[in-house]
């Protein structure tokens, strides 16, 4: 292995936002991403949108996965997107949403800039594949 070779790794932030204490899904995703060879930063529970933005910007993540099971996605996700835009990070961060998100809300989230929404029943492989194919080339 040449030490000069590029050592790029896909960096992901797995984030729990708002008043939502259900983090099993986020844990499963974090672990699966790690096993797929990604570098995963886990935010911890009950984070405010600003905290997620701060972490995403400072860690310079390629992928931001937001897990929401509280139903507050229509409020929280746009706040995160605005924050990313403020720091010039919106365009080259792949934002994913997971959790319980009704079909009728999906269009709105996509318009806000979410690349894909993975609801209950999505296979882990599918999610990993999506990240591999769509992680931004910088």
């Amino acid at each position: 292995m040449s030490s000069e070779q590029e050592a790029e790794s896909i960096r992901c932030l797995v984030a729990k936002v708002g008043l939502d204490g259900h983090d099993r899904g986020a844990h499963v995703i974090a672990r699966a991403f790690r096993d797929a060879g990604f570098e995963v930063i886990y935010s911890g529970l009950h984070k405010a949108p600003e905290e997620i933005v701060q972490a995403a910007v400072q860690e310079d993540v390629d992928v931001l996965g937001i897990s929401i099971l509280s139903g507050a996605h229509d409020t929280l996700v746009p706040k995160i997107m605005d924050g990313l835009e403020e720091y010039g990070a919106k365009d080259d961060t792949l934002v994913l949403a997971g959790g319980v998100i009704p079909d009728e809300d999906r269009e709105g989230l996509k318009e806000a800039g979410v690349a894909a929404i993975f609801g209950p029943g999505t296979s882990i492989e599918e999610t990993i594949e999506f990240v591999r194919e769509n992680a931004p080339q910088r």
Partner: peptide, 29 residues
């Protein structure tokens, strides 16, 4: 990081709560 998959879960950030909302604390994992 895992010597097998090369993946890692970087969890130190979770415990850095007072840095929150203050961009002048720049945390990098």
């Amino acid at each position: 990081s895992s010597p097998f998959s090369g993946g890692a879960v970087l969890g130190d950030r979770i415990r850095m709560a007072s840095a929150v909302g203050d961009m002048d604390v720049f945390v990098r994992s």
